[in-house]
Amino acid sequence: MTAALGAQALPAGTALDLVRSLAPADLADVFRAPILLVDLAGARPDELTALVARRPPLVLVGVGPGADGPGGPDGLGGPDGVGGRTGGRGGPPVPPAADGLDVLLPEVLAPGGDPDEAADALVRAVGQHPEASVALAGLLRMSERLEPLDGLVAESLAYSALLAGADFARWLAARHARAHRPSARPLLTRRDGDRLVLTFNRPEARNAYDTATRDALVAALRAASADDTLAEVTLTAAGPAFGAGGDLTQFGTAPDLAQAHLVRTGASAGAEILRCPHRVVARIHGACVGAGIEIPAFADRVVAAPDVAIQLPELRLGLVPGAGGTVSVTRRIGRRRAAWMVLTGAFLDAATALRWGLVDAVEPVDAVEPAVG
């Protein structure tokens, strides 16, 4: 982005005129980082609607104070999720039609937060990872109009495309390679009356989500769905962290990205939770990073310990979430807050997660003792 464009937000009318005047091939010359900051102050609904309707390959960020709009107590102007859930509880009101933008700073800033610092953080992140940022914005715009299972397919396609990208290749080349440590029992199962408890059991790896864990979880969920004697499935984890995300030792090891897409969509824990006829409850604690929040967010009820630290860090690898987060997290908090989480890699604490609707309750959650052998 040019210095002038990157330094300040543009009025909505000016932003619209700029996007209208540029052919898609010219955007890269004008926007060194594919992000456009739009000043919400005085923005007219018709200008915002027309800007969003053009679907530019830019991350559209609304900055400035919100204005009273028709969105009701959450200020969002209506549903902003997939599958009927509204996004983002307790946010400030925003101008009409601003809900079509990709991020709204008035929604995500904590009280006393500095909007200039937040805008600068977004510009830096998008500048460092332009392809993944634009892919994320387009994916989230699309996913809110898709059924959840279709959203998972769209996410996997975007994820596979970015795995072939230069940004991910740079991350692979720079990382410190480590050997994968398989676990003998990556998932524990325990029957408690009409409740099945599934426990991630890789505490030595902070319950990093590897292929063995995925396969065991998918198999257990499929078996649970076929068991008419069950009423509830509970997800828990052993050790101090619920889940540290995808096991980085296995990233970049798929020899065929097209086949990897078929595997990812055919063995999706999120899809199995969506299909499960029984109530699914996730009890999360400690670090809930990447897959460690993407999967439990599919549950009907998420109970978080006060010590949770929630993050979607995939952008720094040049990727988008790949374990269903663009569907599960978006259904709970809306696509704009989900985009903020991915673009900034910001951690959410328990209070913020509860206020946003990412979790349903905050209460003590006891970590399960790990099993060996």
Rank of each mutant, 00 (worst) to 15 (best):
M1C: 12
T2I: 15
A3N: 08
A7K: 07
A7N: 10
P11L: 03
A12H: 04
A12I: 10
R20K: 07
A33E: 02
A33N: 00
P34I: 10
I35E: 02
I35G: 01
V38R: 00
P45I: 05
D46A: 06
P56V: 12
L58M: 09
G62P: 09
V63Q: 09
P70W: 14
G71F: 04
G90T: 09
L104G: 04
L105R: 13
L105Q: 13
E107S: 09
L109M: 05
A118Y: 01
D120I: 14
A121S: 10
R124T: 15
R124H: 14
E131I: 07
A132K: 05
A135S: 10
L139C: 09
E144S: 04
R145W: 05
L149T: 13
S156D: 15
Y159S: 14
L162Y: 03
A164Y: 01
G165Q: 15
A166H: 10
F168S: 00
F168I: 02
S183T: 06
P186G: 02
L188E: 12
D192T: 13
L198D: 03
F200R: 11
R202E: 06
E204W: 05
A205W: 00
R206D: 15
R206P: 04
Y209G: 05
Y209W: 11
D210C: 01
T213M: 12
R214P: 01
D215M: 04
D215H: 06
L221P: 12
D227M: 02
D227G: 04
T229F: 03
L230C: 12
L235W: 03
G239C: 07
A241Q: 11
G252E: 14
T253C: 05
T253V: 07
P255H: 01
L257V: 12
G270D: 10
R275P: 06
R275L: 14
R279F: 12
R279K: 15
R283A: 14
G286S: 01
A287M: 12
G292N: 04
I295A: 08
I295N: 06
A297M: 09
D300E: 04
V302C: 02
V303P: 06
A304H: 01
A305W: 08
P313V: 01
E314M: 06
G318Y: 11
G324N: 07
T326V: 08
T330V: 11
R336Y: 11
A338I: 02
W340N: 03
L348Q: 02
A350H: 12
A353C: 15
G357K: 11
P364K: 00
V368Y: 04
